[in-house]
Every structure is written in C-alpha cells, then in structure tokens.
Write a protein that binds this DNA or RNA. Sequence first.
DNA 1: CTGTTAGCGCCTTCAC
DNA 2: GTGAAGGCGCTAACAG
Lengths: 332, 332
Amino acid sequence: MVTLEDVARHAGVSLATASRVLNGSSRQVGRAMRERVEKAAAELGYRTNVAAQTLARGASDVIGLVVHDLVDPYFAAIADGAMRAADARGHMVMVGTTHRDPEREIAYVSTLHAQRVRAVLIAGSRVTDAAVTDRLRAELGRYQETGGRVACVGQDLLGVATVAPANREGAADLARALAALGHTRFAVLAGPPHLVTAVDRRTGFAEALADLGLPEPQIVYGSFDRGGGYTAVQEVADATCVFAVNDVMAVGALAALRERGVRVPDDVSVAGFDDIATLRDLTPALSTVRLPLADMGARAVELALSGDHGDPPVVAGVEGRIVLRDSVRRLR
Amino acid sequence: MVTLEDVARHAGVSLATASRVLNGSSRQVGRAMRERVEKAAAELGYRTNVAAQTLARGASDVIGLVVHDLVDPYFAAIADGAMRAADARGHMVMVGTTHRDPEREIAYVSTLHAQRVRAVLIAGSRVTDAAVTDRLRAELGRYQETGGRVACVGQDLLGVATVAPANREGAADLARALAALGHTRFAVLAGPPHLVTAVDRRTGFAEALADLGLPEPQIVYGSFDRGGGYTAVQEVADATCVFAVNDVMAVGALAALRERGVRVPDDVSVAGFDDIATLRDLTPALSTVRLPLADMGARAVELALSGDHGDPPVVAGVEGRIVLRDSVRRLR
DNA sequence: CTGTTAGCGCCTTCAC
DNA sequence: GTGAAGGCGCTAACAG
C-alpha cells in the first residue's frame, strides 16, 4: 500500500510538500516540485487514504442519506437529486434504507455519526409516535453537537432544516379540482394512520371537501404501498372518485379495479399524489399532485451544508402542482 | 467530541480496556470493568470514530456501489438487494451514480479506493470500447492489489467476480417463445450499439430467429431508456412483434404506439426484458424476461466478500425466465 | 516556498 | 484480565 511518505521519498521532497500538492491545501507549491510529486504519485499508483485524512482534518466529505426504500420511486428520485447535488460539491453519499422501521432510522443516524459524515439527510414521512420522534431528535442532537449538519425531507418535526412538501395544501387543491369536475362522493385510500404524510394528505383533502360543503369522504386505511391501494380500494362503497394518498397506492387501486372490471374513469375516477415519473405511462394516465422530488433531494443537501452552526433551522416549503389526466372524468 | 480516552478516564480504566469493550476485540474483559465502561460511554454519549478505527485497523467496513442511475428501477432493484446483503453483514454502502458515463465509473473506483472501502460493486452494462474497459480494469487492479474486493453485475469482461445475467440466452428463449405464437416478422428496438447488454440481447434474439429459419428482424438503434423505445418504435416498418431490449424502452414504445392509435397486442405485439416490478401494472401487461434483480445485487455482495485474495474470479450465471403477458398475441 | 514535527482517535502487540 | 506505548497515514501549525 503506497503512502504519502512513499511518494514524498520517491520524489525527494518532504511529506508536507507532497501533501500540499496531492491533497489540495491552500498553500502554493513551486512548479518543479509539484510536477515531481505528481509524477511520483502516478508512478507509484498513490491513492489518498481518506480515513487518515478524515482523522487528521477532523471532517469527512461524505454525506449520509437515510431513506425508507430505494425501490420506491419516490425515494429513488429524492436520492438521485441529493446525489447529484452532493456530487457537485465533491461529496460521496452513504445510503441507509430503513424499510420503514423508525428504529433503523435512529440506528442509522448513530452509525453515520460514527462515520463522522459531514451531514445527514433524512428523507421520508415522520411517524405520529412522539416517543420515537423524540429519540430520533435526541440522536440527531448528539450528532449536531459535534458539528454534524442535518436536513430532513418531510415534516418539520425534528427541529432541523427541513424541505417540507405542502401535503395538506396539495391534497386540498386536488380536492377542489376534483370537486370542480362535479364529483361529490369521494373515498380516500388513506394509508396508515401513524404516517404523518398520509395523515396530512388525508386531512387536507377531507377539510377542503368540508369547506365546500360536500359530504365526508369514505376513509379506508391500509399500507402506504401498492398493496395498500390494491386492498383498500375494494372496500370503497359508492364513491365516484377515489383519492389514493400516493401514486404507488393509486397504481394498486387501478390494478384492483381493472381486475374487477370497473372502468376508470368511466365508472370511477382515481387520483394519486407525487407524480412519479416511472408511472407516467400508465393507462389511464394518473391524475396527481406533482412534487419536484429530485429538487427536494438537492435542496436538502443545500440546506444541510449551508448556514452556520448556531442558525435556527430553515424550513423550505415545497408546493405541489395539480396535474389532471385521463384517470379522472368530468361529471357534469 | 467525546473520545475513547474520555470514556476510559471517566470509567477509570485504561484506553485498551475501553477499546476492547466498546469496539469488539477478541479479548475478554471482566464483567465489572465492562459495565463501568459501557455506563461511561452511555453517559458521555460516545460514538466510535470510524475514521480512526479504519486507519488503525487498515480496513473499513463500508462497501462501495457504482450504478448508472438510481432512478432506473433496474438499478434501484439491484442496489436494494446489495444493500440488504451488505446490511446483513454489518456493512454500510456508499453509492456512486455514473449516469452512464464510463469515465465516471473509473473515477468512482478511484474515489472508493481512496475511501479504502472493503469492496467495490460495479453494476451495469460494459461498453464495447475496449480502451475504456481496459482502463477500468487497470483501476480495479490497483485497488485489488491493496486488498480490495471487487464484484461486477453484468458482463464478465473485467476479470473480477461477476454476476452475469444470461442476456443472449434469455433473448433467444424469448424469440423462440414469440415465434411459437406464430410471429415471423420481428423488429428489435436495439438500444445503443456500444452497450454490451443491448448487443447481447439483440444478437441472442436475432440468432434464435435465424436458427428457426425466420427472416432477419428489423434492427432500430437508439438510447437505452424510455425515450429510446419511444423514438425507435416509430421507425418500425411492418413487424407483427417488437422486442425492446429492456422494459423501460418497451414502455416508451407502448406510449408511442398508443399515441399513434396502434393497438397492442391486436395490431402489434410488444415484449421487453428485465421484468421491472414497478412496471407490472401497465396495460397491456408487458411480456418480458424476468431477471432476479435483487438477488443479483445480493449475490454480488457475497461474491465480493467471499473467497480468498488469490482465488480466480467466480462467474455466477443468472438465468432469465420468460414471462408472457397480454402485450403479445398468438397469431395462429 | 519548503521542511519539521506534533498530534488526530483508535488498535494491538507486548509486558505485567 | 489489564495497562502501557508505538504506530496507522495524513494535516496543519510552526520554523526556516
């Protein structure tokens, strides 16, 4: 294993000089020496030992990212945006997937802290369980005390910089748009009651309907994935329009409806939330609320890395945009 | 920042003892001391400094993963499998995305080498450019010389342990299955001519047709993504069956056909390759060749981590399974 | 501009 | 079973 010292010796310069040319210091090095060092490094096949560098510098240039599930296109898109932004700033990204286990979220923060990553990004819905949230906050707090930066994509419940999609408002806008098409009897495939994202979207939707003087929607709980939509939609009684709180669930609902011979949008309209790119080729095309997922990931990187340590955490709201496509139909 | 030394002092033991308790050594430590150390660590909020540990041990427990694009469900699935396997072995995963730039692939290997990751996983098609491949091989070679482990998901062209999907054979099987339905005039949306995966699938398909005495398929090149399928299918002349060399391209093709009012499978049959889970709810359901993507990722982790340094690289073949769904139709 | 020299935090022989 | 001490590879003052 070739070390900096080997390179220095091979080039006939001091360790410090070799360090300065190979691992960007602010100091200048004379052209002649610089070239000798670079030549020696190339000849020897030198590779910086980042662990040693991190130890000496007291800071690494790795960013940690915690997501629920990379196979879920929602998180894949956020991760992609975050990784592009990280890359642009010269950072590598270390990823942990929790598969929706809040305990693992906490454990990952601890692990990433141990890795002394420069920043930790937490993406995904918070849970309504205050005790779990508090423990995550505490873990993040310990990390921040030692200089760690944190940003979250989701609800502003952690006391850290947050990219917060307007779930309530987006769902409310969607409700109004659907009502404007003449729908009055709605059902909501609401996902699990302990996921804040699901709850926000469900209540935003329901409140908007109430404001319009429309009847309460039928609420069907279930899991937050395709299967949840698939199962839940089968309990819908007589709605003319079904709102699934995310696109993946809507896809499950569409599949179940198709199997039962229910036509969309002729027999029932369906809408989702997120506007997942991979799902844009479904038939009928899914109406939804578009969230700029990749931007949100990139934004989180910026928030985490910018600002000074003492600053109060920034909360960046993100608006969803209603996209009406073929899966919904005008009733009157 | 709390260090091991702080913990040792707080517990009234030596640094060595604290180290043995907190960071699993093979040595035993008396029960009383162990408990004192653990208590002190908890009280102080100690977190191992992995950088220091890596430096001292000369080995990290991070695995590097290089993929083309996390938003592409193909890679998301492989990454998911790899991360689960890594996790089960106590490793974190550092991810780099190349967005199909072979130069970045090489650069990432270098970066991961600098990070002294325990193993590097490279997922994704090789390119036909031998010069680029040689440089990647060289970079991997340098890494391996210093004890790094490597595994690849794709073609066995790097001289490292490889999980190699049977692209040729899968495509050939598919061709035979489609021919058995009575199709004789085929078109292949072939992707780019420099991607080995695309080439293998195209040639496997064409060769099987030739063996059956059927006419040569029309070959249309393009990009390896949705847009590539969308564009390429518009140049298809008079085939009764279109084979897109991956599912995402097939989705693009379906979209273009739908827009032009061409019915699938009534007017033309369409098949893809990979069997991407997220795409299983398309209508018509896509016929394809199923690859166990998550398993492949997990397998790569195993291959990389197992075996001894001198061993010749293992090549693990992976078979695809034909899945015929509604997007193809029997002609006779 | 270049070299010398303490550490950075932890692991691991080696004695006790 | 426990402690003392050298060293892992690099950085960043500090001198020159």
